Computed example of a mutant assay.
Amino acid sequence: MAKEVFWCSSCLNMSTRPRITFDQEGRCNACQWSDEKKTFNWKEREEELKKNLKKYTNASDNYKVIVPVSGGKDGSYIAHKLKSDYGVEPLCVTVRPPLETKIGQENVYNFVSSGFSHVHVSPDEEAMAALNKYGFIEKGFPYYGWLICIHTAVLQIAKRFNIGLIFYAEDGEIEYGGSTEKKFQATYDVSYQRKVYLEGGYEKVLEKAKLDESKLFWFKFPSEEDCKKITLTHWSYYEAWDSYRNYLVAKEHCGLKETEDTNTGTFTNFAQNDQALYALHAYLMYLKFGFGRATQDAGIEIRRGAMTRDQAISLVNLYDNNYPENFLDLYLDYYEMTEDDFNKVIDKWVNKDLFDKVNGRWQPTFTIK
């Protein structure tokens, strides 16, 4: 390997993770944050939540806030908390994902039926497929079109309903090891969203896709002036984030169902169940950086005290290097590619310092320590 890699001494976060940092004891900033949260006065942050709710819910005669939801655990949990604990009726927005799964459809239906107002956005399928294919080939990001849309479409809805506050789930940069720029800021703006979550340059993707303008409405941000009227926030700022707790609450109150078997590439069955492309995204992440879906899930379990590091290593070795064979025909049909061309795209994004190809599949040259 060109540069020696290492792993967090507490969890399994890898030194290859973008924007991650480690302390002198070799602990990643996600583990440091997990301990730091235990010292917080969360009542003070709850008061900040109440002030923000009062500020923005007095600003509109329509729905007061938006919660983006997929039918999964986190958005369901936030919507439930707003309604049951704070008396705020959110407008929930789902952007229909590509290659939507049956259980994903069922979970959205169950969530809405549990008592929420809901807008279901179905962007133009041709545009979504073209942007996702471009993202897969040119960015190594197999649902980049959908990633754009889950931000832009929600903002377009906020503009039309004159809603000034949008609740996203956790700040993944802070919770899982990344930039700590917003650690002590409750809210952020659209410019930060564009820079961090769309990795910059999304306009070039729209331009190079060469799609008719009429198909791109849901993939574009509102005007700069309109965006300045909308404030974004993460629920994880106001309450210690616990994805497993969210799952239990969503299961009890919002009808959330998990898959019968473990999900492709990991040992869990209750998260990211709404679309088939997530498995490809996780596999590409593994080939780029050396860690996949199981590593991320194991880190969450270690930090909440439900798993030892040694147990996590065994699970990661078992699950992370998982070519999504079960979805291959679906991917080839969706991207309109041959298997050979599909694998050439995958090969293009492999970190050759971390992997060698053996019998047609990429195998790690590293051993987790």
Rank of each mutant, 00 (worst) to 15 (best):
W7P: 00
C8T: 04
L12I: 11
M14N: 08
M14G: 02
S15K: 03
R19N: 15
T21C: 04
G26Q: 02
R27A: 11
C28Y: 08
S34F: 10
D35R: 12
D35G: 06
T39W: 10
F40N: 10
W42E: 12
K43P: 02
E44N: 14
E44A: 13
E44V: 11
E44L: 13
E46R: 11
K54H: 11
Y56S: 01
T57Q: 05
A59N: 14
S60P: 02
D61P: 08
D61F: 09
N62V: 06
Y63I: 04
V67A: 00
P68E: 04
A79H: 00
A79L: 06
H80V: 06
K83Q: 13
D85K: 15
V88Q: 07
C92H: 08
P97Y: 02
P98G: 04
P98Y: 07
E100G: 08
T101E: 01
K102L: 11
S113E: 15
E126A: 12
K133W: 02
K133V: 02
Y134A: 11
K139A: 12
F141R: 03
Y143P: 01
A153W: 01
V154M: 05
Q156W: 05
Q156K: 15
A158K: 01
I163L: 02
I163D: 00
F167R: 00
G178I: 01
E181F: 04
K183V: 07
K183F: 11
Y188T: 00
Y192F: 15
Q193P: 06
V196F: 15
G201A: 04
Y202W: 12
E203A: 06
K204Y: 10
V205L: 10
E213F: 11
K215M: 06
K215S: 13
W218A: 09
F221A: 07
E225Y: 07
C227L: 10
K228A: 13
S236G: 10
E239A: 09
W241H: 12
S243T: 13
R245G: 01
R245T: 02
L248M: 07
L248I: 07
A250T: 09
A250F: 07
A250K: 05
T259A: 15
E260L: 05
E260T: 11
N263G: 12
F267E: 02
N273Q: 11
N273G: 13
D274Y: 04
L280E: 02
H281D: 06
A282R: 10
F291Q: 06
D297K: 07
G299W: 01
I313D: 05
V316Y: 01
Y319T: 03
N322Y: 13
E325K: 15
Y331F: 14
L332S: 03
Y334C: 04
E336F: 08
E336S: 12
M337H: 09
T338W: 00
D340M: 09
F342I: 00
D347M: 06
N351G: 03
D353M: 03
L354R: 00
D356Y: 08
W362V: 11
T365M: 12
